[in-house]
Design a protein around this nucleic acid. Structure first.
Length: 718
RNA sequence: GGGCGGUUAGCUCAGCUGGUUAGAGCGCUACAUUGACAUUGUAGAGGUCACAGGUUCGAGUCCUGUACCGCCCACCA
């Protein structure tokens, strides 16, 4: 053995051996072993793996390797995510930046742009997969999945059909979040609220209208159809139910006074100009008072529509604001203008301030009763109910079908989010994604449009497919079972679902976890996973997020090159408490590298002194305690604690005390005892630092035959 | 506005259901050795566990409040 452990000599070689051995594949395990499954959260094909991915995968791989050593039939299934809007936005940006195209969609057309995105995605995908191997991730490559491959597309279509047939997917005209820049809808959770300064104008529509209102967007007031006041507001109570015809900067409006408890009498003038077409809350008032009507005045390009009047039509909404304000001033109608801090919803992918616009889109109804197509398990329940039950009383009230969220505090976050959930807009106007399996045909004479849900093009002439694609979370919501062959009732599905353990960052709790629960409980009548382990985010040394714009990114592959995969994994796990952010620090990385080398040299010491490893030495109490603690910590998913225990004991007890003492009192008995202790620890450290431990195992000659890897040794019992 | 988290050694953080001298990594100081490992060893410095009350035989650990950081959600037009 070399004096110093050199990871470069072992890592790729060992990974190839493991992969070839077939032990990553659960089918190689003992037949009647208990199944244990982990679905890798599929990294987006928008780029390459960053430190956060390395972190998440280090945790999963520790769990997978631990369970494998405990004799389970472990499926750790790898995959990638096409990440619809994220990938398209990325590629479009790069195409524009490269100056090859100004408007990629226009210049390339649908197929042309898709080809560009596909090429980008494939390249990114292969990089990601190589990176996972470099990290030493013990996943089953034979079951590799991609959210946009053929099998997953089949599953998506099957799900769409099922929800469509159940009436849970519907086409509706409602207000949606619209990114003018991206020319697409986005769901409520794809909105990022940003604080910004705005001016709040207080004014009256006209001289003869009794109630002044306030708005930071006077141009939308051209679409007002009502004014809402609090039902108990004494100032305005007498007007409730009355309708006024007003002339607002030259545009006639019909305004009804309505009462709504959500209006805050203390804010502004205590009266809210209701714009059903361009505000979510106003739209809800319109739903309660449909007689007020809905008048869209802004179109999908952010320009004023004909409804806004001749003088405004075609102009940018933002441009006519100043005009309107000047007009109000001139007419003596402007009461006040004040600067306020306002949070504006922006598109998380395209970055522009989102417009609320009424449109025909596809939605998933979360508050609608699910027809009992699956039998009578859930009479009267809605998708929202299913999402809630899975973490409270268990799916269908079955305690064995209850998801355990670790740490528990995220339960509250999740439930709070569920309560506020509105119907989920699933159609997107971008091209990269699963196309909506619905076809339309318009009869030329009657102008009646037929619509059918079909995956294949229907027979007959004149059919065109819905141009929209599905929200990316529609397919990732199915990840725990689309990867197992659903809608086919495969053996894998029966064996590995519900999956045992899932990990994700808290930032996608709502995006992803909620959708997985929705899809799985609805379609399979099963929870998607038994445990959801929520990890924190990795931050830079100053506690900032890693981001492209800050340029503080760290390439895991470079770290591995220099320090080794084990050192990186050690560093990432060592500082990780469940659900808590951690700052990335070189200190832990050095600690990891040093520990790998320490293990190496402990082995070397034993080897040089001719220690024999076949003696059945007994486990002393100190080691037994370590085994107990480590096992308990694994069971509680306290990975950092387990690693710390192992590290401390190995270094500061076994090496510093027992190895040192043995130097002056070396005999066969001592040698056997130390050897036995060391190999026991080697097994337990393996899930965290797979390469160096496996390398030592082999260097010590403990690999007795071709397939006798450390990775499949039995977890120690006391 | 609602909710959640953090405040422990110079830095990054552990400390799970309250129990003897509060821990780790890295850093620091002194010394040592090249006989497993300088990616080392030995010894050591360094903490009134944010603050104020309370519960308890006993609190970093539980309760109440305060301050300061941070995060998430939300329809203050």
């Amino acid at each position: 053995m070399e004096k110093v452990y050199n990871h470069k000599l072992y890592e790729s070689k060992l990974y190839a051996q493991w992969e070839q051995s077939g032990f990553f594949n659960p089918d190689t395990a003992i037949k009647d072993a208990t199944p244990f499954s982990i679905m890798m959260p599929p990294p987006n094909v928008t780029g390459v793996l960053h430190l956060g991915h390395a972190f998440e995968n280090s945790l999963m791989d520790a769990e997978a390797r631990y369970q494998r050593m405990r004799g389970k039939k472990v499926l750790f299934l790898p995959g990638t995510d096409h990440a619809a809007v994220a990938t398209q936005a990325r590629v479009e940006n790069e195409l524009i930046k490269s100056k090859k195209y100004k408007h990629p969609r226009k210049e390339l057309g649908r197929e042309g742009l898709l080809n560009e995105i596909r090429a980008y995605a494939e390249k990114s995908k292969s990089t990601i997969l190589a990176q996972l191997r470099t990290l030493g991730i013990s996943c089953d490559w034979s079951r590799l999945a991609y959210t946009f491959d053929e099998q997953r597309s089949t599953a998506v279509n099957a799900m769409f059909k099922r929800m469509y047939d159940d009436g849970l997917i519907y086409r509706g005209y409602r207000v949606v979040n619209w990114s003018v820049k991206g020319q697409s809808t986005c769901s409520d959770d794809e909105i990022v609220h940003q604080e910004r300064e705005a001016i709040l104008y207080t004014f009256s529509y006209s001289k003869d209208f009794p109630i002044p209102i306030a708005s930071s967007r006077p141009e939308t007031k051209l679409g007002d159809t009502a004014v809402a006041i609090h039902p108990d507001d004494k100032r305005y109570k007498k007007f409730i139910g009355k309708t006024f015809i007003v002339n607002f900067v030259g545009q006639p409006l019909k305004i009804k006074i309505i009462a709504d408890a959500s209006v805050d009498p203390k804010f502004g003038t205590g009266a809210l100009g209701v714009t059903p077409a361009h505000s979510q809350i106003d739209y809800e008032m319109y739903e309660k008072n449909p007689e007020i009507g809905i008048i869209p005045v802004i179109d999908q390009f952010g320009r004023m529509t004909a409804n806004a009047g001749k003088t405004s039509e075609g102009l940018k909404a933002t441009d006519i604001r100043t005009k309107i304000v000047e007009q109000l001033k001139a007419d003596g109608l402007l009461v006040k203008e004040e600067k306020i801090q306002q949070s504006a919803g922006t598109s998380d992918r395209f970055g522009d301030v989102v417009e609320v616009i009424p449109m025909e889109q596809w939605f998933v109804a979360v508050n609608k009763e699910i027809p009992s197509s699956l039998g009578s398990q859930r009479p009267g329940k809605t998708l929202k109910d299913l999402m809630r039950e899975a973490v409270t009383i268990g799916h269908n009230g079955d305690k064995t079908q209850k998801i355990q969220i670790v740490p528990k505090r995220f339960e509250k976050n999740y439930l709070n989010w569920i309560d506020h959930l509105r119907d989920w807009c699933i159609s997107r106007q971008i091209w990269w994604g699963h196309r909506i399996p619905v076809w339309y045909r318009t009869n030329k004479d009657s102008l009646v449009t037929e619509r059918i849900m079909s995956i294949e093009q229907p027979r007959g002439d004149g059919w065109t497919q819905d141009p929209d694609t599905l929200d990316t979370w529609f397919s990732s919501g199915m990840w725990t079972f689309s990867t197992l062959g659903w809608p086919q009732q495969t053996a894998d599905l029966a064996t590995f679902h519900p999956t045992s353990w899932m990990t994700m960052g808290y930032e996608i709790l709502f995006f992803w976890m909620a959708r997985m629960i929705l899809m799985s409980t609805y379609a399979l009548d099963q929870i998607p996973f038994r445990v959801a382990y929520i990890h924190g985010m990795l931050r830079d040394e100053q506690g900032r997020k890693f981001s492209k714009s800050l340029g503080n990114g760290i390439d895991p592959v470079e770290i591995i090159e220099q320090y080794g995969a084990d050192a990186l994994r050690f560093a990432l796990v060592y500082g990780a408490a469940p659900g808590t952010d951690q700052a990335w620090t070189l200190a832990h990385l050095k600690g990891g590298r040093n520990f790998a080398n320490k293990l190496w040299n402990m082995a070397r010491f034993l080897q040089m002194n001719g220690a024999k490893f076949d003696a059945a030495a007994t486990t002393d109490t100190a080691l037994a305690t370590v085994i107990d603690e480590t096992t308990a910590n694994f069971e509680k998913h306290h990975f950092a604690e387990a690693l710390r225990t192992l590290h401390n004991y190995t270094w500061h007890e076994l090496a510093d005390k027992e190895f040192e003492a043995a130097k002056t009192d070396w005999n066969d008995e001592t040698a056997a005892r130390l050897a036995q202790k060391f190999t026991t620890l080697l097994i337990m450290i393996h899930p965290f630092m797979p390469f160096v431990t496996e390398a030592i195992w082999q260097e010590l000659g403990l690999k007795q035959h071709d397939t006798d890897f450390l990775m499949i040794q039995q977890w120690p019992k006391r």
